[in-house]
């Protein structure tokens, strides 16, 4: 399986993703510079974390116009698996590939900590190997990760089972105290209508091997392999 990792000026997690895919999971992978127009025959596209275009104006606002995004949009519309992690999620939301927006954390602070996530949908290429309701621990590192969508969109996401991950306590209970950034409905990750595009604020790429003390993120990459 071949992964393509999009690199924008200001991306800074592309090597974390590359390492997981190439050295931990032994898959084929290449970087895709944002000015390229093709996806180099990738079977799965990753938009990594970072600060694309300096996060100027709004996170992801400029990145959505990078030339490669046309190919990413086409690939997604054909059902290809696309995941946006952290800044990648913000870009997918700005590009309209995922609903809603990511706004400033409710505390205004940049947050760098572990969080607990409840898996609320395994109907996606990235979550299919995770049992429904399973709690995963993953790190976050963001200043603008508060998920917002209007009431109509939120209820639609819920009804259609498109909320992939929610912030929760270590046992999987939803609790505002364990919602680090104030995301509505404790949303940490959402899916598009078809289920092939996932965006999430936590970093599975930073917790995918034992040497790092946490392997909970690995299953997201494993799920997509062998599709």
């Amino acid at each position: 399986m071949k992964f393509g990792i999009v690199v924008f000026p200001g991306s800074n997690c592309e090597h974390d993703c590359y390492h997981v895919v190439k050295h931990v999971l032994r898959q084929d992978v290449s970087f895709l510079w944002h000015k390229e127009k093709t996806l180099a025959r990738s079977d799965c596209v990753i938009l990594p974390g970072g600060f694309a275009h300096g996060d100027y104006l709004r996170c992801g606002a400029m990145a959505k116009f990078s030339p490669i995004m046309e190919s990413v949009t086409r690939f997604a519309s054909e059902g290809g698996p696309v995941v946006g992690i952290c800044n990648g999620f913000q870009i997918l939301a700005e590009a309209g590939l995922l609903p809603g927006a990511l706004i400033r954390n409710r505390t205004l602070h940049y947050l760098c900590q572990d969080v607990y996530l409840r898996t609320d949908s395994n109907a996606s290429p990235f979550t299919r190997k995770i049992p429904h309701g399973k709690v995963l621990k993953m790190p976050i590192g963001h200043g603008e990760g508060c998920y917002y969508a209007d009431a109509k969109t939120l209820s639609r996401l819920e009804v259609e089972g498109r909320i992939a991950f929610r912030y929760c306590d270590p046992k999987g209970n939803l609790d505002e105290e364990w919602n680090p950034n104030g995301s509505l409905k404790s949303i940490a990750g959402v899916l598009n209508e078809r289920g092939n595009v996932l965006g999430l604020m936590p970093h599975p790429d930073r917790c995918a091997e034992a040497i790092l003390g946490n392997e909970d993120g690995r299953v997201l990459f494993e799920s997509v392999i062998g599709l």
């Binding site: 104006l57 709004r58 606002a61 400029m62 116009f65 939301a93 700005e94 809603g100 927006a101 706004i103 917002y148 969508a149 209007d150």
Partner: peptide, 8 residues
């Protein structure tokens, strides 16, 4: 297109 995100 760019200056505002009309979702928010």
């Amino acid at each position: 297109r760019l200056l505002a995100n009309t979702v928010i």
